[in-house]
Design a protein around this nucleic acid. Structure first.
Lengths: 336, 336
DNA sequence: CATCCGATTGTTAACGCTCACATAATGTGA
DNA sequence: TCACATTATGTGAGCGTTAACAATCGGATG
């Protein structure tokens, strides 16, 4: 910077002013400085800048290391939203969710001078680990509303409960009553909320969920197994006529099982998924599912992060939920 | 740091020594400093550290903003490999690949003091933009070997060509001759290499690729369209008996089209994909495909990045290719 | 004509850390 | 006992930037 100043015949501070687009710099001077910068191929050192301003133009994102659709999509969405507002992101993935590891990661971010931290916390223990941390910069938790505990952090997420109700009510409207739900792992907020939504929708329609809940994980393999088992009691009087899968992968596995067994979907059984993953439109048959608006989530997440002064007192507790959308395709049909 | 020094009754330099695990600090002193750090909740400011050392324990990853399987998986893999060696990552996604944008991003990384940069460059223009950049830290290009140009960067990638040969030879061995290839966008290295592999495998078997190449993109929608068209000429004398899809999404779309039209896979036509995406095992039928070893890629990428002194002269040009693996499932069968 | 104002530019002092070197403390062998 | 390593610690400078304040200049004002 000193070199630039010398070439342009000004002080280093004037160079700094030009760089920061300070208003009171004569256009002529500015041009001279710009020319010098260009000539010397000068680049401002952002470490030095961060040192003095205490800002870095960077936010930190913490995410579990799973490669599952939800967390991954969320990560990408936040990354993109950040780029739109000119922020860079630093990413840390967590394989264990104890408070110590979490603190270590948040420490790193903090000492890097991040201006905010987003924690993608699909699982209960991740959220719990965050609660123990007091941060000088805003922290946003991407999780279900039910994750809010001590509440020093702002929370946002897609309304999984509403999505599940949407899905279940869709099946109910088609006349289904025996609607099995294959749930994801119980330590996932999403799984819990979806199960709740399904249960409540059933309850509202006067249907008992008794015996209709199947505990699973998020995998297609699991969906396949459940599909096989379901096929067996398809003959019975009290046959299942519809399934609400915890996610599209589960649905895919089930579809595969049904296809293999010659069970017609939606002829004999209707299937609804959750996520609208890339390709679910082309399953056999194309899958009715619940689409999560990740782009919206990403932007909302950043809005929340940037709301209020960066170094404010503990942020106001706020919880926001984004409405998902039902995408009706060919895997669901009127019962009978 | 001055505060810590005061509490511990030492100089700031000694604190610095403790933090950097310098050998010549008396254990007793070290403990005292550590206690003071703990007590004060002190965190080292890495901006200041980066300012003077010009290192940050962070690497930068540049990736196109597409949410496609390849780039995304690569990103995750590198992130995980980085974590394993204790490096943090900063991510920048690019939506345009001109040299200016690329330079801006690399600038940011550099001024942040990254110790290395990984550029995920699935497309030709991304790689080209990198070539113009001279970096004081090592740069690794994740791309096909054919991306190597001016060659100031090290290149690594999965051997798409070999994968395509594997896939095509598998079909050839099953007796197929009319093997259509649905290729990805021509500005993608992967698409080009896969097409080449297919063409060469055909050539080696004495089969002309004439009229068998279909230009597509990576989408299921495109696969579906091609599938529909293929169905029409399935009646003819010179019928296509197998398809090598550029990726699994394309394959999924085709499978959907065939399923819809009542075309039996692999009875009437065999299908091979590429990627082995989550779920391809549960397509209808389960998909024969080529698996890319992303975890290996991530680790290799980091090895390459960390090989040699961080601030060395232009790194030796090196190109490494990782062998993919054919996963045979039910979408392929002997012809006839 | 002296004074004050705003626009522009320069000067100096941090920011928090590590590096190079100086100094003090301890041990070692002749 | 003394010179001489060796180990442990302290001192001062400087990394490249911005913030705060000072200084200069050309009017406009009274």
């Amino acid at each position: 910077m000193a070199d630039v100043a010398k070439v342009a015949g000004v002080s280093h501070q004037t160079v700094s002013r030009v760089l920061n687009e300070h208003p009171s710099v004569r256009p002529e001077t500015r041009d001279r400085v710009l020319a010098a910068i260009e000539k010397l191929g000068y680049r401002r050192n952002s470490a030095a800048r961060a040192l003095v301003t205490r800002r870095s133009g960077t936010i930190g994102i913490v995410t579990p290391d799973s490669a599952l659709y939800g967390p991954t999509s969320t990560l990408i969405a936040i990354e993109q939203a950040s780029r739109e507002v000119g922020l860079f992101v630093s990413v840390a993935t967590l394989s264990s969710y104890d408070a110590e590891t979490m603190n270590h990661v948040l420490d790193h971010f903090l000492s890097q001078g991040v201006e905010g931290i987003v924690v993608i916390a699909p699982q209960v223990d991740v959220a719990a680990a965050v609660e123990t941390f007091v941060s000088p910069v805003p922290v946003v938790l991407v999780a279900d509303a039910s994750a809010v505990g001590a509440g020093v952090v702002r929370t946002i997420g897609v309304d999984q409960y509403a999505g599940a109700r949407l899905a279940t009510e869709h099946l109910l409207e088609l006349g289904h009553r025996r609607i099995v739900h294959v749930a994801g792992p119980t330590d996932w907020f999403d799984a819990r909320a979806r199960t709740e939504g399904w249960r409540d929708a059933l309850g509202a329609a006067g249907v008992s969920p008794e015996g209709l809940l199947v505990q699973g994980d998020w995998s297609s393999a699991c969906g396949y197994d459940v599909g096989r088992r379901l096929t067996e009691d398809l003959a019975g009087r009290e046959a299942t006529t519809a399934v609400f899968a915890g996610n599209d992968q589960l649905a895919l596995g089930m579809l595969h099982a049904f296809w293999e067994q010659g069970v017609s979907v939606p002829g004999q059984i209707s299937v609804v998924g959750f996520d609208d993953i890339e390709g679910s439109r082309y399953f056999a048959p194309s899958l009715t599912t619940v689409r999560q608006p990740f782009a919206t989530l990403g932007r909302a997440c950043l809005d929340l992060l940037m709301a209020g002064p960066a170094l404010a007192e503990p942020a106001p507790v706020s919880v926001a939920a984004i409405a998902p959308e039902l995408v009706v395709r060919e895997s669901t049909a009127r019962v009978g």
